[in-house]
Nucleic acid binder design. Structure first.
Lengths: 217, 217
DNA sequence: ATTACTAACTTTCGAGTAT
DNA sequence: TATACTCGAAAGTTAGTAA
């Protein structure tokens, strides 16, 4: 979240919908934001350079539309504010597709096995399911229910893990699971799920399948 | 919308709910935001000074909760993003209470009467209903359906007006109406509604009554 | 009308440090 | 541990102006 959000947001306020297009001049935008025309012009040029917007010159200003990247910035903020303002108990759902992990999941679950068993209350399956969400998803740290302390082994250091409780589901089945969050990670782009069972085998899951994760809050 | 939003938002991300309280140190916050401890400390002090947060020192940091003012900043952003991301056709509802206008509504409607009649397609009632929304409401400019040009009369200048089409309702009745937006206004805090009929008389509306405005988008 | 460059100005930041 | 002050350095802003 950097400053560019404020400008993107100001643009989005003036668009009826995410797929819309906006005609605005740099001086108008400057007025909206309380900065000069020159500064507004630089803002737009920076946003374009960063891949957040696309623009084309029109006679009375410039036509602006948001790129996927720009929309995702706004969507991430929207989803976080939604969890913040929604009534307690409103389910938090994340939809995503199964992706190929780096193959390290099994290795790590094995290494952390003892600690995880104590924390989770069951023997975790030796492997993780990696899920790539379709949209940005809320910041998960606030839902953390436990932590596994880091350790060193064979000259290699294993950092602390936090985990969030969730329910994984697809058509016809539901499984309790945990989402693993390496302690020193700021921007998670995939969810790493551990479970008591091998879900790929048990439910015939393969890469690309669409799953739903519901956070237990 | 100024920069303080970014810090408020970062705090809200770490709170489970709007009524929650957060324990965080200035250096942790600095890390989240990518700034130094000193800067984060100043951010918090500025937010407190501005009335956006309340805080109290704890041993390992400070307890932070958001004030009504701070929540309204976030809520305003949330509502705008909601209209931006919701499917087209999702109704946009604003609930608010009738308040005493400055008594100028009748005067202005009279002055603008001719132009309004042309734009709205009916003879507007000589008076406006002022509504104070309960929560922040979305930026309305993007829903403008028409404009009434400004003019000068008797040495006094009347600025341009824009208007948005809406449906006003309460238990048992519904009325088509328009929300009037003075062209050079940036921060509307009340809605000024014009209608074909005198609603205070027709429906027995009095100050403090709760009404709902649905925007026609 | 616009957009956007450069140079001077202003604000914001953070290392050092006090509390 | 914390928070938060001062002040030199860095970053951001805008007036003037070109295109």
């Amino acid at each position: 979240m950097h400053r560019s959000f404020l400008v993107l947001y100001e643009l989005s306020k003036r668009m009826k919908h995410r797929s819309g297009r906006l005609l605005i001049s740099s001086s108008e935008l400057g007025e909206c934001l309380g900065v000069s025309q020159q500064t507004a012009s630089r803002y737009l040029s920076d946003l374009e350079l960063g891949g957040f917007i696309e623009r084309s010159r029109g006679g009375r200003g410039q036509f602006i539309s948001l790129t996927r990247k720009g929309l995702d910035v706004l969507d991430g903020v929207y989803l976080n504010l939604k969890t913040f303002f929604d009534e307690i108990g409103t389910p938090i759902l994340i939809k995503g597709r199964v992706v190929q992990g780096f193959g390290e999941g099994a290795y790590y679950v094995k290494e952390y096995s003892k600690s995880l068993r104590e924390g989770l209350g069951f023997e975790p399956f030796f492997g993780t399911l990696n899920i790539k969400p379709l949209r940005p998803f809320p910041f998960l740290e606030k839902y953390v229910v436990g932590e596994v302390k880091g350790f060193s082994k064979g000259g290699r250091s294993f950092g602390s893990l936090k985990y969030v409780s969730a329910i994984l589901s697809s058509s016809g089945w539901t499984e309790d699971c945990f989402i693993i969050i390496p302690k020193r990670t700021h921007h998670l782009s995939e969810l790493e799920v551990v479970c008591e069972h091998g879900l790929r085998e048990k439910h015939g899951i393969k890469d690309g399948d669409l799953l739903q994760v519901e956070l237990k809050v």
